[in-house]
Design a protein around this nucleic acid. Structure first.
Lengths: 195, 195
DNA sequence: CACTCTATCTACTGATGCGTAAAGTAGCGA
DNA sequence: TCGCTACTTTACGCATCAGTAGATAGAGTG
């Protein structure tokens, strides 16, 4: 039931998906969708969101155990890309359909938990957890961007994708851990004109 | 008119926003919204999307002129964060509300143009433009992630945000340009178990 | 004042789709 | 055969808007 709903919602979004379509996809009648789906369209969608968010958080959190931040991050990214590519429709529901409208709050809190988890992956004695939050949010966004590229015809195994992301971010993260932040030394500082 | 529509759409999303609400926000009556807004809700929303996408692309593209990729990227990022923080509701419409549903295609093509533009910012004689696409998609995602953090209570000027993003990504990009990709040498390669 | 044109409003129609009620059917144990 | 459960089909009530038709107001002109 939730699988069918996730497929329909992933395809059409919350508003454009009808409960009749969910019923068809699940191979049952509409009253059954209400009996076993929570009693309303909102609740059904919320259940899909919660399940996918939980799946993603569990995946990223699990099997991380390592004292080395580099290893932790790589494993977390690998888990992320594995789950996302395996449960494509879950990803579509969570990050493309659910972020707008009534459920933005629910998705936002789910995303916050993942960002916090990533901040933990980065942190150790040499990194302040609070300072890690913007970096973690950046990383999660980067992973989403690479996932977008993948779903738009990009190729590669989850391991490849994780390694590619590590190529982009790890040198910078290592430098930050060593206290070396980037600054626009001789890059020019003219104001940006904004339309 | 478009400003009012963008505010309402940013707040509620396409479906949950009513034309009455747009009319109220603009201080006119509903038929006026149809007369001056394109004749349909879809067209009004599409105009908002196109305007914001154009604004962002113009901003990122303009004032880049430099032979140095590092400078180009920093300036592009600075322009991005300037525009996004200045036109908050435009950002909300474009990247949070419009990606789902009927307008996913329109937003997707707008985003593609920006990603392509970023790939050009990265490219020079030593970088293959095609290979730059996943990296550009990653970067755009990272910028979105940092913007998300900012809009959720993060602080900093656009220059700070751009510099922070450079800290994370530039060392990795420089290494990639020199031919040094990250690989999981001694990081462990156990399979990820997926629920 | 009369006439007209344009801009605007109030109030309605029509369609869509959520959610449910009613009536029928198949399986199953006693 | 009875009753119970689970499900189906069909049909409908009801609310919410998108979009429009007809009324109204103001302003310029003679």
């Amino acid at each position: 039931m939730l699988d069918a709903a996730a497929r329909v919602f992933a395809r059409s979004g919350f508003h454009d998906a009808s409960m009749d379509a969910v019923a068809d996809e699940a191979g049952v009648s509409k009253p059954m969708v209400y009996t076993h789906g929570g009693g309303s369209k909102e609740e059904l969608f919320a259940r899909c969101i919660r399940r996918e968010a939980e799946r993603l958080l569990t995946s990223v959190s699990g099997g991380i155990g390592s004292p080395d931040p580099e290893t932790r991050l790589y494993r977390g990214l690998r888990a992320f890309f594995t789950t996302v590519t395996t449960h494509r429709e879950g990803w579509m529901v969570l990050y493309r359909q659910a972020r707008a409208g009534t459920f933005a709050g629910e998705v936002f809190s789910a995303r916050s938990r993942i960002v916090t988890r990533v901040a933990e992956l980065l942190a150790d004695s040499s990194v302040d957890p609070a300072a890690a939050m913007p970096v973690a949010s950046t990383l999660v966004g980067a992973a989403e961007g690479l996932a977008d590229w993948y779903f738009d015809g990009g190729t590669g195994t989850p391991d490849d994708l994780a390694a590619q992301l590590m190529s982009v971010v790890w040198p910078g993260l290592a430098a930050l851990r060593a206290g070396h932040a980037w600054s626009p030394t001789d890059v020019g500082t003219e104001r940006v004109t904004d339309s």
